[in-house]
Design a binder for these strands. Structure first.
Length: 253
DNA sequence: CACCAGGCCGTGC
DNA sequence: GCACGGCATGGT
């Protein structure tokens, strides 16, 4: 019923730079690099991840994204267009703490500036894994910072949110096994985490695929193309459908 | 000068 | 429960 599209490769740039992670940089030689797990990883395609246990998990290689892509495209005309407009997308399996701070930074912000703030936090509080490559700081490494110090780095009104996340870091270890609603409620106990930020953390770090981040772009998509629908319409591919629609609408300008 | 960006918080009703 | 303004910063 759903024919596989041979040769439809991953859109690595969209997966890594499209707003679900802020850890990756595109180097001049075309490689993508990131400091994760105390290593500098450099890859040019998803295939490079297959042999490495950490990257296997990070790129969710044991999930059938071709099948999902196919079934999403078959759902309706808009999704078909969204899926056909890009290569195959994936949902990353990121570190809980990194995802939490990343998406706290993301509120009322743009991807370029979020990436810049991520870098500044890494250089200020992280440690140098290779010359010029800094890890994103752990909560422990950030402990002792102040609101003023964070504001001086440019995080603005998000400074107290980051302080609260440092304080409540333990919450992130209590999420696994909970329902989506329970997980969301726990995360929203941290200041600066509302429904949208929580959904991003739950999808991109806890593999809760029923999340459906409603940012300003997706509100436009829903209002224009799905006025009488809600996220459950996309079940069981809520998160991945959202990712395709988000990528598509953003590429439209 | 406006207005916007992968929103959330506090207040008021 | 919902509507509204404020919020740091940098880009267009």
């Amino acid at each position: 019923m759903c024919e596989y599209h041979e040769g439809m490769e991953e859109n690595l740039r969209e997966i890594l730079m499209g707003g679900q992670s802020f850890s990756w940089r595109e180097e001049e030689d075309g490689l993508f690099s990131a400091v994760l797990n105390e290593h500098v990883y450099r890859i040019k395609s998803i295939d490079d991840a297959a042999a490495d246990p950490f990257l296997r998990s990070y790129f969710d290689l044991d999930y059938d994204y071709q099948k999902a892509r196919c079934e999403i495209a078959a759902k309706d005309e808009i999704l078909s267009r969204a899926v056909e407009s890009t290569g195959t997308l994936r949902l990353l399996h990121q570190d809980h703490w990194i995802a939490t701070i990343s998406f706290i930074l993301s509120q009322n912000n743009n991807i370029k500036r979020i990436t810049g703030l991520y870098d500044r936090l890494s250089r200020r509080y992280g440690h140098e894994v290779e010359p010029g490559y800094f890890s994103f700081p752990s909560a422990e490494e950030m402990k002792g910072t102040t609101e003023q110090e964070l504001r001086d780095l440019g995080v603005g009104f998000r400074a107290p949110f980051i302080l609260d996340a440092i304080e409540k870091r333990g919450i992130l270890d209590e999420i696994d096994g909970l329902s989506y609603e329970e997980s969301e409620k726990k995360l929203m106990g941290i200041k600066g985490i509302g429904p949208k930020v929580a959904s991003c953390i739950l999808i991109f770090s806890y593999q809760k695929r029923e999340g459906f981040p409603m940012d300003v772009w997706m509100k436009k998509v829903m209002a224009e193309y799905y006025p009488d629908k809600d996220p459950s319409y996309f079940h069981p591919y809520e998160a991945l459908s959202q990712q395709y629609l988000f990528s598509w609408i953003r590429s439209q300008g």
